[in-house]
């Protein structure tokens, strides 16, 4: 890798780190200035809404199978249903995810 590509790599690495760090520092200082125990109440409301909608959007993009076909879309649907059913029963993280992946895998193997 040439020197210029190394510099490009480091610039991207530092830029990505700053994109993650600086907005956190800004909000941490804002909350500290306002000196409140209930930090979440002092956050802009649009920001508290964007957090869950970002996670919902990640969920939406991750639903699209790597190799889309009728089988993989069907397996995705069945896997999400299984995840939901086990989550309703356990209200935990591990078992619903494990069950969803297992059922998704079984459908892909049987129908694929």
């Amino acid at each position: 890798m040439s020197h210029t590509i190394w510099i490009t790599l480091l610039t991207i690495a530092i830029g990505t780190y700053l994109i993650r760090l600086l907005p956190y520092l800004w909000m941490a200082r804002k909350l500290e200035r306002e000196n409140t125990q209930e930090g979440i109440a002092n956050m802009p409301s649009w920001l508290t809404i964007l957090g869950p909608t970002m996670i919902a959007a990640m969920f939406g993009t991750s639903l699209v199978p790597g190799h889309p076909s009728v089988t993989t879309w069907f397996a995705t649907f069945v896997g999400v249903m299984m995840t939901y059913l086990v989550w309703r029963r356990t209200r935990s993280m591990g078992w619903p995810i494990f069950s969803g992946v297992a059922v998704f895998g079984v459908v892909v193997v049987l129908l694929g």
Partner: peptide, 22 residues
């Protein structure tokens, strides 16, 4: 090949479990 076909479903399952209580 199943590594690439099956395991990535852990991500939508994870995001689903994180967001559904909302």
């Amino acid at each position: 090949p199943l590594i690439n076909d099956v395991l990535p479903f852990a991500l939508p399952a994870l995001f689903f479990v994180l967001i559904v209580p909302r």
